[in-house]
Write a protein that binds this DNA or RNA. Structure first.
Length: 215
DNA sequence: CTCCCGATAT
DNA sequence: ATATCAGGAG
């Protein structure tokens, strides 16, 4: 009955056909590495994150390693990802908190995750979904932009968008849908120059008609 | 709301 | 030159 749900289902099916095996593009070997990589991914491409973590994880492996490394050393190691001072602090404080509160393990609930320093809902849902199989909508810049263009939400606040999307999709599809939208955002529905004619779901999207000839 | 910030595409 | 990239904290 809900037209939004119906459209969301169709878009999900089309995207799934286009991208059969959805998976995070971030390289990691365990939940902790994924957590670090996701913190580094703020306002940075996953490609750049993978370059940095490739060498980073050779040098530092455990939460203990990260909690003990000098801050300026960590800053130098992650500098190419941008926001390197904030991220270095977040990662180091986060590693310390994991040691103190969870004996070095990464927790598997949203409340525990977002209580960690430098971890918000986006980062938490990425790790929960990919490392623990816990359902969650990941609202990053791509998901926010595409959700607005597709008319899934009128909101700009990421938390409101997250709840709007949770309402129009079954829980079992939250994680995959997030990843599918991110793939779409990278290849077609880009921020600056969206390639609507080639978009695999343009027939289900109201946005192309809205921007006919933007000079 | 502002600040943090390097790398890349346009 | 400028917009944008798997955001979060104060």
């Amino acid at each position: 009955m809900n037209p939004l749900r119906s459209r969301a289902e169709k878009i999900f099916k089309s995207l799934r056909a286009t991208y059969p095996h959805v998976k995070t593009q971030l390289h990691f070997k365990n939940p902790f590495e994924l957590l670090v990589a996701t913190i580094l991914s703020a306002q940075c491409t996953d490609k750049q994150v993978n370059i940095v973590t490739g060498t980073l994880f050779q040098r530092l492996k455990t939460p203990k390693d990260f909690s003990q490394v000098p801050l300026d050393t960590l800053e130098a190691l992650i500098r190419p990802t941008g926001y390197f001072r904030n991220k270095a602090k977040s990662i180091k404080n986060c590693a310390t908190a994991l040691l103190e509160k969870y004996d070095g393990r990464v927790p598997d609930t949203l409340e525990e995750m977002v209580a960690l320093p430098g971890v918000g809902r986006k980062t938490a849902n990425v790790v929960l979904g990919a490392a623990f199989g816990v359902p969650g909508i990941v609202v990053d810049t791509h998901v926010a932009r595409i959700s607005q263009r597709m008319g899934f939400t009128e909101n700009k606040d990421p938390v409101k968008i997250e709840f709007d999307l949770m309402e129009i999709l079954p829980e079992s599809k939250w994680s995959d849908f997030s990843l599918l939208l991110i793939y779409l955002g990278r290849e077609f529905c880009t921020a600056r120059k969206p390639d609507c004619p080639r978009c695999p779901v343009n027939r289900h999207c109201p946005w192309p008609e809205k921007t006919p000839l933007k000079k």
